[in-house]
């Protein structure tokens, strides 16, 4: 792809701004968020994400200590569960469920075919599950672990991590990536845990709100869905459950998560709602010509395979606009008639 000089310059300037921020003894998080919203350069994404997730402290003098402590803590969990004595006590049904899901996670990307990587992801999910019994492991959480894993591992290799030779990476490095992924995944899921508890109330609520939002943004599409008998839960359930990861290439998700984290991890599901609305409205013209079954099948496999950062950025700015328009006045979205 051709990249213009102006573009390269603006990239270099942005990179410098990030560097300047990260060099401060105490990182200005407001500035970092502002800058990250527009995308984080790959070279420093691992550090920026750890800061945005609240995993690394803003105070640079504390970072090494905290990181060592957290990694040690995770190592202890692994020892408890996966040492020779610990293994006998593993919940076999849970082990099996996670195992069959990891085997089919990102199967189009070579990195995830590596047994070492698969076992590492399985440990993360298992430990998270047993430490969060209210929800436990729910299918789809496997997807959510991979952006962190990929970004953190990318910082340890010189080539494209998706096709890197895993055997060249040291055990110690992999352990660190695993621990960092665990903690960031935990932070992420803390904010959306009721998406995964019994009957998945968080998702149900989001879907009701999305329906109301679409009614306001695109009344014609809403009416067309009503006419065709399309229920939002039939397509949007997965959008909420996997944060659109099943709809987008992994690299697009990673770019999207720059902005999600910049919005604030507490506000993630709120912003995600608007992104889902923008994602649906994007296909409005096509969808309005379709009948029930074509609508469902189209939305089950939305044509995003060739999407790049620009498509994601367009989606994000639309979501931002809807949020500015409707988010500040939540009354607009209040559900007056629950049966509507």
């Amino acid at each position: 792809m051709l990249v213009s000089v102006a573009e390269l310059n603006s990239k270099a300037i942005r990179f410098k701004k990030f560097e300047a921020l990260l060099e401060q003894p105490i990182v200005d998080m407001d500035q970092l968020k502002k800058l990250s919203w527009m995308g984080v350069p790959e070279e420093i994404r691992h550090t920026v994400w750890k800061l945005l997730m609240g995993y690394l402290p803003t105070n640079s003098t504390l970072r090494e200590k905290i990181l060592a402590q957290k990694r040690g803590e995770y190592d202890d969990y692994v020892q408890q569960q996966f040492s020779d004595e610990g293994k006998a006590g593993l919940d076999q049904a849970l082990v099996h469920q996670i195992h069959i899901d990891i085997l089919r996670t990102n199967s189009n990307i070579p990195l995830y075919q590596s047994t070492v990587i698969q076992e590492s992801l399985e440990r993360i999910l298992y430990i998270w599950a047993i430490r969060h019994p209210a929800s436990g492991y729910v299918q789809g959480i496997n997807d959510l672990a991979t952006p962190f894993y990929q970004v953190f591992l990318q910082s340890c290799v010189s080539d494209d991590v998706e096709r890197t030779d895993v055997s060249l990476i040291s055990k110690e490095t992999l352990n660190q990536v695993e621990a960092d992924t665990y903690w960031c995944l935990t932070r992420l899921l803390d904010g959306i845990q009721d998406n995964y508890t019994h009957a998945q109330p968080g998702i149900q609520r989001q879907i009701v709100r999305m329906k109301e939002l679409i009614n306001r943004i695109d009344g014609q599409l809403y009416a067309h869905f009503q006419k065709e008998g399309v229920e939002f839960i039939q397509f949007a359930f997965r959008w909420m459950n996997c944060l659109l990861m099943r709809e987008l290439p992994l690299k697009s998700t990673i770019r999207m998560w720059d902005s999600y984290q910049a919005e604030g991890i507490e506000a993630l599901s709120e912003f995600h709602l608007y992104v889902c609305a923008a994602f649906l409205v994007k296909w409005s013209a096509e969808l309005k010509k379709m009948e029930f079954q074509d609508i469902i099948q189209f939305l089950q496999a939305a044509p995003t395979a060739s999407w790049g950062d620009r498509d994601i950025e367009l989606l994000l700015s639309e979501a931002f606009m809807w949020k500015a328009l409707f988010g500040s006045s939540p009354q607009h979205l209040k559900n007056n008639n629950p049966n509507q």
Binding site: D101, R104, T105, Q139, I233, R238, N241, Q293, Q300
Partner: peptide, 13 residues
């Protein structure tokens, strides 16, 4: 062989 796990419900005719 590697089809992703089904989340919720999927549909075909």
């Amino acid at each position: 062989l590697d089809s992703k796990s089904t989340i919720g419900v999927e549909f075909a005719t």
